[in-house]
Amino acid sequence: MSLKLKALLKSPWVFHLSTGSCNNCDIETLDCLTPRFDIERFGMLLVGSIKHADVLLVSGSCNRMSVERLKVLWDQVPKPCLVVAIGTCTGSRGLFIDSYNCPVPLDKIIPVDVYIPGCPPKPEAIIAGAVKLIQKVGGTL
């Protein structure tokens, strides 16, 4: 494994994107930062600008308006960049599959590396998902 990749896996800065979610996944993601879970232990930081991000955490069921923005943002993000889909909505669109405003699933818009199912996934599940992501990219899974 190259040094570049090693460093990336030890310091994934995440940018959080909601594409029309019910907020629960977003709140549980934020929860990962707080004292009980504290993902800064693993070098993860939540950043404000997409330009600083290494990992995109996407939640929500991809509605028509946010999908357009999602495509623009995906072009802007500096590569290499990993994508984590949080919640059932991003995986299968769950309840919202027949909604007139949610035409396409997330993995048809941008490539997804890891899915974390759950409605909402618990913070422990999100951390476990992040670990899986690191293992997968690092080639140990």
Binding site: S18, T19, G20, S21, G60, S61, N63, R64, M65, S66, R69, L95, F96, I97, D98, S99, Y100, N101, C102
Partner: peptide
């Protein structure tokens, strides 16, 4: 608005 509009009506 509209970035979060899921139109729950038709699917429920």
């Amino acid at each position: 608005m509209g970035y979060n509009h899921r139109g729950i009506e038709k699917l429920s």
